[in-house]
Amino acid sequence: MNDKSKIEKPVNVLIVGVGGQGVIMVSKVLALLCQTHGFEVKQSEVHGMAKRGGGVFSHIRFGPKVWSPTIPKGKADILLALEWAEAMRWLDHLKPGGTFIADTQRIVPPFACRNRKRGAERNYSRETPAEIIDKVKNGYALDAEGMAMTLGNRRVANTILLGVLSTALDFSPESWQAVIEKFVPPHTIETNAQAFQEGRSWTANAVKPLPVVSEAPSAESIDITTELTINTVWCKGCDICVKMCPERCLALNEDQEAVLIHPDKCTGCRICEWLCPDYAIKLHKRPNSQTEGTGAGV
């Protein structure tokens, strides 16, 4: 691709992750790299729910001439995901035969729970790396954060991913490194160079078995029973759980105590448990094979 004339159509790279991970930094590196090679670059960022933990994505399109700044569904040549659930969420943007690169780390923000209702259609984030990699033509799933930790700095995970990305594009490793150096703190240049190399050599040897996604529920555990216990002695009737439950499972009774009114609707998202200031709610999740019947509140 160093030969500009070889590219006629814009190349579409979609970079996704959650707030605070460095999606913007990664895309800036790529954009600058393309720019220095004389391409026209269009970059459009959306900071998702605009908070830490919310989805953040960046569309990068480069080529001799680029008109639209966004990548439509099914048209991304490369999908680079810094977080596994976001990777799954954006998978439909990858074109058939496109390259998929994802970090297997999972960051679960409390408000990112989508349809997790029992019996609902299989949820995107429940897929295992193996299942995905089987579906895409060029798929890479790696525990970049774990690798970065081995290098002694968990913040170079993104540079490892850039190393992987570099194998899918035709820019020279040196030109990548030169750009990366501009974006990282001076004292970490060396570690970042190592990380970049690490990413490249990992790709060269990338073989199965693939790493396991941490905390991603396995396919078997989709069918779960949730059981919510409410300690009414501790409950102060603040109404937080009632108003925050996405499924409106809870209500306050006449004594101003929280009660579970729709146990069947509870998806086990734990928002009520997390936000109860009085630790009055405890959610138990059990695979259905071990439990009979539906969960019930106390």
Binding site: E215, V233, W234, K236, G237, C238, D239, I240, R270, W274, L275, C276, P277, D278, Y279, A280, K282, H284, K285
Partner: peptide, 28 residues
């Protein structure tokens, strides 16, 4: 896993319910 964190293991249960007002953010 979030499932295996049981806050009760870290609390002096005999002192509960705690004395903060309903809805106080400090509990979270």
């Amino acid at each position: 896993s979030a499932d295996s964190f049981d806050i009760n293991e870290y609390l002096r249960l005999e002192l509960f319910p705690h004395f903060l007002c309903p809805g106080c953010g400090h509990g979270m």
